[in-house]
Design a protein around this nucleic acid. Structure first.
Lengths: 355, 355
DNA sequence: ATGAAAGCGCTAACAT
DNA sequence: ATGTTAGCGCTTTCAT
């Protein structure tokens, strides 16, 4: 019922190896033979068995994308949709199919299994859960190409690509300072992930860079549940001296904040300015449109897939460590009028640090 | 470097076949041997090669999800994120991994290739593009399990699972009629997909069911571009006798409509009532919260994956054809006050029509 | 309870 | 330019 290379061979009256070579475009096959084989393949409706081919070639032409988040959080939002779309597109451009792993966070052993069984040719990892680093270290041994997305990992032997989070905070805070704000709050998720940790640090550093005092009461952390952004903002409003502007971990959370403020009758940006992060599609459609930090997610996806491929070709090449530039997209949630872009000044070209 | 079954065999001093049996839990291996093999496997860090296993077992333990939409549309939104999440979860529960195919719409041959190369054990298909049916028919021959999501396909030999779209329109229109609306518009996407076609028909049928006249001017079709929902609504507002309520193809589009109305100063629901479809997460967070049609997407995902598995076990069993019940979620965009649920009256249990 | 051997369907080194 | 042969790493008869 399913036709194999043998069927073609006997159909055309040649050996299977010649069929294989003809089909794979080797140049040591007579043009005439190639034609006959191709016609036979077409007539018989032949397609190579993926499994057989994978075993023989020792590759699968698939890459994995592992989303390692607490499942309450990974309750995918628009950002994940966009990410998945762009990674899938990048994979497709590089002749890979994309396998999605959304349950590895609950059981890190799953990651190890993927690496060791070699069911994909490489793995992109987004997210952070306790014990991840140890698991990832095992990848070296397994020879599974790996790129961590969205943060620079400590381990210099692991490839990663991120956006310039520090510059992001500087641009956002700087912009707010320019507008005259002095009490600038920060809202993030209550999470031990290094994504959260890093951004908090960046916020504090940015305050310092502009000689603003750090005040713990101006930091609020939302739970991973939906609508907890509202409660985080609420704590600010109960302060005797609430912040006049808030920088938010991501757009999704910022949008919740915006909704809460509108509901409470607090005007944005007159009473409180709001700046998000990610520039998801909805950011420009909120009321008022959300100021946010943008970075080239498509570029990140593409380079990450590229790096996986490169790692396969040259396993001993140094790991990739890249930081992509960010830009501030000023919309009405922080300024009164039309949008402007403040590009990351020193980083037109991505900063590349091959370690 | 990578340890195989042979290494374990020689390590323990037995044959590879015994190792294999021990590892796969056959009961004709001495308990003692099993223990020694397991320990050896653990010590050596053994994992079976996915490719070898796949070839031998003639299955991959992966299923595919093909999203067949015009790429402008498939610019994933929240709905797709949710769908992917639920399908991934269902796949995981059934011990499958999920492969995402997002570029098959552009080249239907890709679907054929997937089926014929057997790189996955089954395929879930969402979307509709010209020529799809012919492609899908080829799946029978290839013996690739297939379930079409979200619509009942004409071909009775193809498995599919959908929600009760007709009942959805009846509930929505009926609710609006109850509120006194007589001019009820419909906004959808300008698309030749059968998803769109079917829902338009349902809207018209529902009008008829409530003895309302059909007026072509009360149907508006948005392009696939973002924000074209606004323009669709705009055409209604220019009418001398605009609709007092609109039923919208999906929540994503309905939210655009809501935003446009708010921007134009049109009050919802006082001036225009709005009802969406899908009950995406954002629906309850809009201003005002969006009334919409809900259906059990998680259940759909689960049954679809189940059907793929069943098809593998019994290839000659009749195809699945299921229609899941819908319920109307009344929020403030259609009624003035608190939310209510109007359940699909005749369909508590899903309607099953095994053909 | 275990081992020998065949083979899943293909590719690639080697021979001619 | 083509055929022969040997696997890829496992699973599974069939013997013993």
């Amino acid at each position: 019922m399913v036709v194999g290379i043998k069927d073609i061979a006997s159909y055309v009256g040649i050996s299977t190896s010649t069929v294989s070579r003809a089909l794979n475009g080797y140049d040591d096959v007579a043009v005439e033979t190639v034609k006959r084989v191709q016609r036979a393949a077409h007539e018989l409706g032949y397609y190579p068995s993926a499994s057989a081919r994978n075993l023989r070639r020792q590759r699968t032409d698939k890459i994995g994308l592992a989303l390692l988040f607490d499942s309450a959080f990974a309750t995918f939002n628009e950002f994940f949709a966009e990410l998945i779309r762009l990674v899938a597109a990048a994979a497709y451009r590089h002749d890979y199919n994309l396998v999605l792993y959304t349950h590895a966070a609950e059981e890190l052993g799953e990651l190890t299994r993927i690496a060791q069984t070699r069911e994909v040719d490489g793995l992109l990892v987004l997210g952070d859960v306790p014990g991840l680093d140890d698991t990832l270290r095992g990848f070296q041994g397994a020879g599974m190409p790996l790129v961590v997305l969205g943060r620079l990992v400590e381990d210099p032997t692991v490839s990663c690509i991120s956006m310039d989070v520090q510059q992001a905070a500087r641009l956002a805070i700087g912009h707010l300072v320019d507008l005259g704000h002095r009490r600038i709050g920060y809202i993030s998720f209550a999470s031990t992930s290094r994504y959260s940790q890093e951004r908090t640090t960046c916020y504090r550093d940015a305050l310092a860079a502009f000689d603003l005092p750090h005040d713990r009461r101006l930091e609020a952390y939302a739970s991973l549940q939906p609508e907890s952004g509202a409660r985080a903002m609420e704590t600010f409003l109960t302060l005797v001296d609430p912040p006049t502007a808030v920088y938010v971990y991501n757009d999704r959370l910022a949008i919740e904040v915006l909704q809460y403020l509108s509901q409470r009758g607090v005007r944005v940006p007159q009473d409180v300015a709001v700046i998000g992060f990610d520039d998801i599609r909805s950011a420009k459609m909120t009321a008022p449109p959300l100021s946010t930090v943008r970075y080239p997610l498509d570029e990140i996806a593409d380079r990450a897939v590229c790096a996986l491929r490169a790692h396969r070709a040259e396993p001993d090449a140094p790991p990739m460590r890249q930081v992509m530039p960010v830009e501030l997209v000023v919309r009405e949630s922080s300024a009164g009028c039309g949008a402007q872009h403040y590009s990351s000044s020193f980083a037109i070209e991505p900063v590349v640090t091959a370690v």
